[in-house]
Design a protein around this nucleic acid. Structure first.
Length: 744
DNA sequence: TTCCTGACTTAGCATTGCCCCG
DNA sequence: CGGGGCAATGCTAAGTCAGGAA
């Protein structure tokens, strides 16, 4: 395997590189920046789009929401992805799998308070959800708490605080009790996602409220009273005036075009130039509103909060197979101006208001159908239990479908997540073979095969995304592995002491720049040279390859294998390795957590998960440094005092118990100071290293939670030190089932 | 075979919530 | 006892991937 190892050290380089990699906001979007970065930049849409692959998809009239909504229930073909379809196969999948080693403890239930009534194999069929008693209690408790703490604000007595604490604990336990332990149940047959589904439909944003009479729009200096429709769109723009979006040409043009579509004839003939429009008063009103909201009294805020809670209670949950589940996004997206990421050709377009008539409802036949808002009806009622969505509508910018789906802590999402990690673990078992294979393929006579091999090499080594082709002009110009163009890489026979270096510079998902210099093996390098022969910068690097072919190939090597599985696999395995490497039993908790974050960070760097440095970063860093400095002085002082005390104790004879205790006390003080200092220093390091790296994405989407849970157990760290509440909810299955000996 | 689209995951940024400090 | 600052949550855009039509 040889070069896989490069990854380890690679990641060190990597981390240096990461600084370079991030583009500041304007660089990112403008693709401008300073000269040296030729490729990704100079090639911006304008000049490049012309020579961009001619064979690329050409936009065809899309949209047309295909009005053929039949009442059909899709027939799911028998696929064979993950672990052979179990029709009623027990769900201890891990055990079923030929897992390595003695330690596939995975599915063994942890002790905790619940000793599942099933050893492992039993729990004979049936959808069975025996446990899960009272569901309601949860709410009651919450209410109670509200009534308790809110009215008596004066000052909390000790008892009250204690009481609140107890309540919290109780609530937590209750929640735990109520949790649907779906991972102990049997899986449904193929393709069936649920047997019963009932919900109240999506929540619609409030109607537009016309502007008050004292707020006006002006055109060419003259007051113009707009129609309600045009006014609403004008407000969308006015609200964004502080944002630099509204200064961009494309944004303004798209907005203006769409705005004019919403105008009456008269308005349209009057308003011909956006520059002559004055949204000042509207903008000011909006700012005032924001300000007013900030300055609401406690009572007002509370009232608002309660109103929101009511909405959540009514629309935020559904009933799925006898269990109440939280819905992830139960609100219909409000209208507004589309804000794409990066240099999006459609930025500024009007995102229309969705009406019930646009919405398809999905629920079971037996369920109560949600009531549409008064005077409205749904587009369609569907009963399709092979999908997981509760409602959907077609969005007007890209013509794609938006869905209302369940929260990440739901069975439907959790199960899928678990499955994802199981597939990745399966890859672990055959990854060596697959690597050997693509190394062989690098020498293939078939150009297509060679390209596939090189692409796979990148995907495996660099965790690149697959890179589907995109329609030109519909989205920002971004690429993944298979869609890389010649202009995105530069070959260096030798660079900075390494041979055969490939320099990548392209915009990936969300227009985040990927910049990396990677030494590759000679065969890969030579192949790249070959692929680039006689091509223009705008041509596809892998002209004989697309994601479909690649994935077809992969799935022939292993059931369920696709390009993104490599990302999951490499992310998780990296975490596991790094944790092993970086943590010591002898560390204190702060150091252990730093180690964990560093391991997490290594993955984030691998996956190129970036973030804009927080606006207040420098300031807060300085604050922290100041605090550290202060603490350091305090430590010095404490040390001096300790010395003093010791001296005194010595001179006065050690028999003096008072002095002895003083010495002890001073010692303790020093120790405390040291600990705190260390903790803060560690924190500072952590924060600095994290400046432009986002840990959340990998934690949430790529790292098998069982690795983290097992690490916590081994290191005696509380799980809630690494997972917040919603993460613990999402990973409840892993927290529940994972033992210390889990190995990915 | 290619195209198209539906369904679902992954992504970063914006907003909100909450804790701690002065 | 407000407000600054960060963490948590919300939002929705932008990917992946596969099935089925053309």
């Amino acid at each position: 395997m040889g070069e896989k190892d490069a990854k380890g050290e690679g990641s060190a380089k990597h981390s240096e590189a990461v600084k370079l990699r991030r583009l500041s906001d304007h660089e990112r979007t403008a693709g401008g920046g300073d000269g040296n970065k030729h490729s990704a930049k100079s090639t911006k849409p304008t000049e490049k789009s012309d020579n961009r692959r001619s064979h690329k998809k050409v936009k065809t009239p899309k949209m047309e929401p295909a009005d053929n909504h039949s009442e059909s229930v899709k027939q799911e073909p028998v696929d064979d992805d993950f672990a052979a379809k179990k029709k009623g196969v027990k769900r201890k999948r891990i055990k079923d799998e030929p897992m390595e080693g003695p330690s596939h403890s995975t599915s063994a239930p942890t002790s905790k308070k619940k000793n599942k009534q099933h050893g492992q194999e039993e729990e004979s069929g049936g959808e069975a959800q025996k446990k899960k008693p009272k569901k309601k209690t949860e709410k009651t408790v919450k209410k109670e708490e509200g009534e308790h703490s809110a009215p008596k604000k004066p000052k909390k007595t000790k008892e009250e605080i204690e009481e609140a604490r107890q309540l919290k604990i109780k609530k937590k336990e209750e929640e735990e009790q109520n949790r649907w332990r779906w991972w102990e149940e049997e899986k449904y047959e193929d393709g069936v996602k649920w047997k019963f589904l009932e919900h109240n439909g999506p929540y619609f944003p409030p109607e537009y409220q016309p502007l008050p009479d004292n707020v006006n729009f002006y055109y060419g200096g003259k007051k113009v009273k707009l129609s309600v429709t045009a006014e609403e769109v004008a407000l969308f723009f006015a609200q964004m005036l502080d944002h630099e979006y509204t200064t961009k040409k494309v944004f303004r043009e798209n907005f203006f075009k769409d705005w004019r579509k919403e105008m009456t004839h008269e308005e349209r003939s009057l308003i011909q130039n956006l520059d002559k429009c004055d949204f000042g008063e509207i903008h000011a009103m909006h700012k005032a509103k924001v300000e007013a909201r900030k300055n609401m009294t406690k009572e007002e805020k509370l009232a608002l909060k309660e109103a929101n809670q009511k909405i959540v209670d009514e629309y935020g949950y559904c009933l799925l197979d006898h269990h109440k589940e939280r819905i992830g996004n139960f609100k219909i997206e409000p209208p507004g101006l589309f804000r794409g990421r990066g240099e999006h050709p459609k930025q500024g377009m009007l995102k229309k208001r969705i009406q019930p008539e646009d919405v398809i409802i999905n629920c079971s036949k037996e369920a109560r159908v949600p009531v549409p808002p008064a005077g409205h009806h749904w587009k369609e009622i569907r009963h399709d239990n092979t999908v997981t969505w509760l409602a959907s509508w077609t969005e007007n910018i890209q013509g794609s479908i938006k869905y209302i789906m369940l929260n990440a802590n739901s069975k439907l999402k959790g199960e899928k997540d678990w499955e994802k990690y199981e597939v990745a673990r399966k890859l672990k078992l055959c990854v060596d073979d697959i690597r050997n294979q693509y190394h062989q393929d690098l020498k293939s006579k078939q150009m297509g095969t060679r390209q596939r091999a090189v692409a796979l090499y990148f995907i495996d080594k660099l965790a690149l995304r697959a890179g589907n082709e995109k329609e030109e002009g519909e989205t920002a110009d971004t690429v993944g592995c298979c869609s890389l163009r010649v202009e995105h890489i530069t070959l260096h026979e030798e660079l900075e002491g390494s041979k055969y270096v490939v320099e990548f510079d392209f915009l990936g998902k969300d227009s985040i720049r990927y910049y990396n210099k990677v030494p590759v093996i000679k065969k890969v390098f030579k192949n790249l040279n070959l692929f680039m022969e006689n091509k223009q910068p705008g041509d596809d690097l892998f002209d004989r390859l697309n994601t479909n072919m690649l994935n077809k190939h992969l799935s022939s090597l292993m059931a369920g294998l696709t390009a993104k599985v490599f990302r999951t696999y490499n992310a998780s395995i990296t975490l596991q390795q790094q944790l092993k490497e970086l943590t010591n039993k002898s560390d204190n908790e702060a150091e252990r957590l730093l180690a964990y974050n560093r391991a997490n960070r290594a993955v984030a760097i691998l996956c190129n998960h970036q973030r804009a440095p927080p606006k207040t970063f420098d300031q807060s860093m300085a604050n922290l440094q100041a605090k550290i400095e202060a603490r350091r002085e305090q430590l010095e002082l404490a040390k001096t005092e300790l010395k003093q005390a010791k001296k005194e104790a010595k001179t006065k004879g050690s028999s003096d118990s008072k002095l002895q205790t003083l010495v002890e006390r001073k010692k303790a003080a020093v120790k405390r100071c040291e600990d705190q200092l260390l903790k803060m220093e560690v924190q500072a390091t952590d924060r600095e290293e994290n400046k432009q790296i986002a840990l959340g994405t990998s934690k949430l989407n790529y790292l098998d939670p069982r690795i983290s849970v097992a690490w916590c157990k081994n290191m005696e760290v509380q799980v809630d030190k690494i997972y917040n509440k919603s993460q613990r909810d999402k990973f409840a299955w892993a927290i529940d089932m994972t033992e210390a000996d889990f190995v990915f």
